[in-house]
């Protein structure tokens, strides 16, 4: 059955097509407006974390420059990890009127991050390198994916 030509429907179809095209472009663009970098002095959560995951392990990378390694504390309970520590700012010996700029966040912090799987607490490894804290958190046996062979009758 031949449909009558309807300019409004044509325009609607075109609009939808343009929307779809832009959606695809949006996916391919580098994420310009992602929370990009350093938490300033008013950061709500510190440190910021990135999470990586593969079959057996969860990895946490935390953006935490200038920590006193002795103050750094990492603890794992089931599927959450807590990072706490202290970042030193300008030493107390500097007089307030001798400070030209104070932009870096400083002080004590604690943050708990929930992980996508339960963790084997005994095998957790932590590394502090170039101001990034890197945690290697092996998944607990119960959380690992299991291969099930299909019986063919």
């Amino acid at each position: 059955m031949a449909q009558q030509w309807d300019p409004w429907r044509e325009m609607e179809a075109l609009r939808r097509e343009i929307d779809r095209a832009f959606e695809q472009v949006g996916l391919r663009l580098p994420p310009l407006f992602r929370t990009a970098f350093l938490p300033g002095r008013a950061a709500r959560e510190y440190p910021l974390v990135n999470l990586y995951e593969d079959k057996d392990t969860v990895y946490v990378e935390a953006l935490a420059p200038g920590l006193d390694p002795a103050s750094l504390n990492v603890s794992v309970v089931r599927n959450s990890v807590t990072i706490s520590g202290e970042k030193k700012g300008i030493p107390d010996s500097a007089k307030p009127d001798s400070v030209h700029r104070e932009e870096r966040a400083a002080g004590r912090f604690t943050r708990t991050v929930e992980l996508p799987a339960e963790i084997d607490e005994n095998k957790v490894q932590a590394e502090y390198k170039h101001g990034l804290l890197f945690l290697t958190l092996p998944k607990a046996e119960a959380a690992k994916p299991k291969q099930i062979t299909v019986q063919v009758a």
Partner: peptide
């Protein structure tokens, strides 16, 4: 990105601290 810095002065010098994580 411009890194946040602290700058303070002592009688003999200026000290600049800059956060450069991952470098």
């Amino acid at each position: 990105v411009s890194p946040p810095v602290d700058i303070y002065e002592t009688p003999n010098e200026l000290v600049l601290l800059a956060d450069l994580p991952g470098v």
